[in-house]
C-alpha cells in the first residue's frame, strides 16, 4: 500500500492495514502520537482501529517543547 505520511510518500507492507499497524511499523510512541487521517482527526478512542487505504494522507504529530 502506498500512502503519504507526514508529507513523505511511503510504501507499506501488506500487513499494515490499521493506524495501530502503521504506528507499530514506524515504532512510534502510541502514547504520544496524534493521528490525522485524510484531514480527519482521529480521537484516541477510535484511532488505533481506523482502517487504512491506498492513497491515504496521514499526519502523525506530537507535543514538543514550545512556549
Amino acid at each position: 500500500m502506498n500512502m503519504t505520511v507526514n508529507g513523505r510518500d511511503v510504501e507499506l507492507p501488506d500487513h499494515v492495514t490499521t493506524v495501530r499497524d502503521l504506528l507499530d511499523h514506524f515504532k512510534l510512541n502510541k502514547e504520544l502520537a496524534i493521528v490525522e487521517l485524510n484531514q480527519s482527526i482521529l480521537d484516541k478512542s477510535i484511532r488505533d482501529d481506523a482502517a487504512l487505504s491506498d492513497g491515504d494522507r496521514i499526519e502523525i504529530v506530537q507535543f514538543v517543547g514550545g512556549g
Binding site: 505520511v5 507526514n6 508529507g7 513523505r8 511511503v10 514506524f26 515504532k27 512510534l28 510512541n29 504520544l32 502520537a33 496524534i34 499526519e59 502523525i60 504529530v61 506530537q62 507535543f63 514538543v64 517543547g65 514550545g66 512556549g67
Partner: peptide
C-alpha cells in the same frame, strides 16, 4: 505549554519531555 509538531517517522527513538515528567502533576 507545548507546541504541536510532526513526529519524525524515520526516527522512532526521539526522546520527548512528556516521557520525563508525570503528566498527572501538570495541566498541559
Amino acid at each position: 505549554t507545548f507546541a504541536v509538531r510532526r513526529m519524525n517517522i524515520f526516527e522512532p527513538e526521539q526522546p520527548n519531555f512528556l516521557e520525563k515528567i508525570d503528566v498527572n502533576n501538570y495541566t498541559l
